[in-house]
Simulated scan of single mutants.
Amino acid sequence: MSGSLWDLGTKPPSISIVNQGCESPDVPIKGLTSEMKLAVPWGHIAAKLWGSQQGPPVLCLHGWLDNANSFDRLIPLLPKDFHYVAMDFGGHGLSSHYSPGLPYYQQNFVIEVQRVVAALKWNRFSIMGHSFGGIVGGMYSCTFPEMVDKLILLDTLPCALDYKESENLLTYKRRMIEHMLQIEASQKPQRVLSPEEMLQGFLKNNSHVGEECARLLLQRGTTQVATGLVLSRDRRISLPEHSIDFVSRDLLVHFIRKLQAHVLLIKAMQGFYNVRRENDADKEALNLVKDILKSVLKEWFQYTEVPGNHYVHMNQPQRVAGIIGSFLKSGTLNQL
């Protein structure tokens, strides 16, 4: 699709609202008001909308290889007087895949956020991000600090700290390039699975996701074909560390000082501590980032831990909903 979206400030972007008042027949979604498609140069960005568009806006950003359904069980438990928009990143969910040759780098997703925000004509809003979505939301909040009022981080950090990763960074970049070129050159068709095979494979590869939540993510993350289901995400997307922009400690401090947002970090006690799972027992990076946030933001930073794993916002949304709701409604925060 030829894009209309940018030319910012000259030609207004194309936004289509579909399925007004929609409810999924398979998994009912309380309070969902509509689905949105936003035209971009490579196709469209898809999003789900909850609540009145007159309410304070909250942009919800999902994790790596997830999609907007990541927030289906949480948003109905949050304050009703806010306007929630959960977008699918490019190559994920119902959003278009990037054009051939264009890689999936973290900065591209930050640009996607700005595209959505500009199209919706938001001047100031809050961000709620899970996992990789929190890293994208954090980088956006540091890059466009005047735009973000509150930043909610669900088992994630605002930036990926270059902590013991320096020697790996070029390897990550090389593997990302090699993977993308290999997939683009491959003529291998998408693997078609039955719904049950797809579900069991997903659960095997995503141990932190319960069956009900897996069905939710697959509902938006698969495409029906004649003989079964195929994953709809772009196969060029490789491991998250291959696309993340790691930053040094000094850069992290510099970025955090740019923030004009109140920050809530909710850490799942059985969640992930490192983007590379083989280092997941090492909590030093989390503690260092937490100390920097506390030192720089002072009373603007709130940290809390909850029982649960990396998908606690889906598996047990009631454990985080009250904390998030109070944060969204609060003025000046008191440090925990």
Rank of each mutant, 00 (worst) to 15 (best):
E178D: 12
I324P: 00
H97S: 08
T227E: 15
K164S: 09
R257G: 11
T143M: 08
F132A: 12
G55D: 04
H254W: 11
C213V: 05
L153F: 06
I15Q: 07
D245N: 15
Q316Y: 01
M139Q: 09
V113M: 11
L336P: 04
V306A: 09
A119P: 03
Q270K: 15
T143D: 06
V110Y: 01
Q53T: 09
G271V: 11
Q318V: 02
I15H: 04
D250W: 07
D282M: 13
A118N: 10
K48D: 03
L181G: 05
D72N: 08
P76I: 00
S194L: 01
E167S: 09
L216M: 09
H179D: 08
T171W: 04
L154Q: 05
R124N: 08
T156D: 10
P189M: 01
Q106L: 12
E112L: 06
T222I: 12
P145S: 05
G43P: 05
P41C: 10
H92C: 15
K37W: 10
H310G: 05
P158W: 07
P100V: 05
M269I: 13
Q182G: 14
M147S: 15
I256W: 08
T332G: 02
K30V: 10
K173F: 03
S96D: 12
N168H: 09
R249V: 13
M139Y: 07
D282R: 14
T171C: 05
C159R: 07
F246E: 13
V320A: 02
M269P: 02
L293N: 15
H208N: 05
F125I: 03
V312N: 00
Q190Y: 04
A261I: 11
G271T: 11
L102H: 09
S131G: 07
R235F: 14
H130G: 06
G325I: 00
P28N: 14
I292M: 15
E284G: 11
L77Q: 03
E196H: 00
R277C: 08
F125Y: 12
T171G: 04
I237C: 15
L286K: 07
A268M: 13
D282E: 13
Y273Q: 15
